[in-house]
């Protein structure tokens, strides 16, 4: 069984984001990169499947800059067998990324039985790549999965929907699944795992190698800027019982005219 896990490298959650001076992207020089936390659930799920099917091969695939291969190395230290990296800038759009991932998966020469990914990346929060990838491969796909069972070629997944309800889907492999928090508890990469990861194969491709060009861009970023700073809240003094009625109508008035929430 060939399992592919798509991972993204994202800025550490504690990173202070600064747009570049020309606003074309964010400053990346001093960023500490980590594996997208939702992708950790995908890697863990792949490894759990591998534990149940020792013959399974887990390949992690990533599209992004090469200066730091943290996410792929972490996944291999956790137990993935090999990795594939498509070298690209970090501000590609979802369509180009999905196409590059597909190209990288095809380059391995293996037919995927399962493609796993995090439901979203915590940096740009697009929530698109797994679905586009499924469409490109013409495979069934379920996102936001929090439960997984596998029996032969049948996969039963639970999907979280509004209001805390769960939808249950039964699919036949090959499938594309996008994982959510709660699906499992990602393991730590062990120290022996880190040592072993050094020797695991990491294939590297250019965007051109996997058939992606600038013409594939569906979304172009026009600018990056920080959100305006939140103005300080207004305080109303209603301790004087005689004035309470007046203060309340003042607040209601402002909620209506200024905040426009009622």
């Amino acid at each position: 069984m060939n399992i592919f896990v798509c991972v993204k490298q994202v800025p550490d959650t504690e990173t202070k984001i600064t747009p570049t001076s020309d606003g074309s992207f964010i400053e990346t020089a001093s960023i500490k990169w980590i594996m997208n936390p939702y992708d950790e659930y995908a890697v863990e799920q792949a490894l759990l499947i591998k534990t149940a099917n020792p013959a399974a091969n887990v390949t992690v695939v990533r599209v992004g800059s090469v200066k730091d291969t943290e996410a792929l190395r972490t996944a291999m230290a956790m137990g993935a067998d090999d990795a594939s990296l498509v070298e690209a800038t970090d501000n590609l759009d979802s369509y180009s990324i999905a196409k590059a991932l597909k190209g990288a998966i095809e380059k391995t020469g293996k037919t995927p039985d399962m493609i796993l990914a995090g439901k979203q990346a915590i940096d740009d929060d697009c929530l698109q790549v797994p679905q586009i990838l499924a469409q490109m491969f013409n495979l069934p796909s379920v996102s936001v999965i929090v439960g997984f069972e596998m029996n032969g070629n049948t996969v039963k997944v639970k999907r979280e929907v509004e209001g805390g309800a769960l939808e249950v889907y039964e699919l036949s492999t090959p499938v594309v699944l996008a994982c959510n928090k709660g699906l499992n508890t990602p393991r730590y990469a062990s120290l022996p795992g880190i040592m072993k990861a050094k020797k695991k194969p990491l294939a590297q491709h250019s965007l051109a190698d996997v058939g992606v060009s600038d013409a594939d861009r569906r979304v172009k970023y026009s600018g990056f800027k920080l959100p305006p700073e939140k103005p300080a809240g207004k305080k109303f003094d209603a301790t004087d019982a005689a004035k309470q009625k007046e203060v309340v109508s003042q607040v209601v008035g402002l909620l209506r005219t200024e905040a426009k929430v009622i």
């Binding site: 943290e70 190395r73 120290l191």
Partner: peptide
């Protein structure tokens, strides 16, 4: 080294 940085990351995460 790369391994030392990874070891540090793992230990810090733990």
């Amino acid at each position: 080294s790369t391994e030392q940085r990874e070891i540090r990351e793992l230990a810090l995460k733990f």
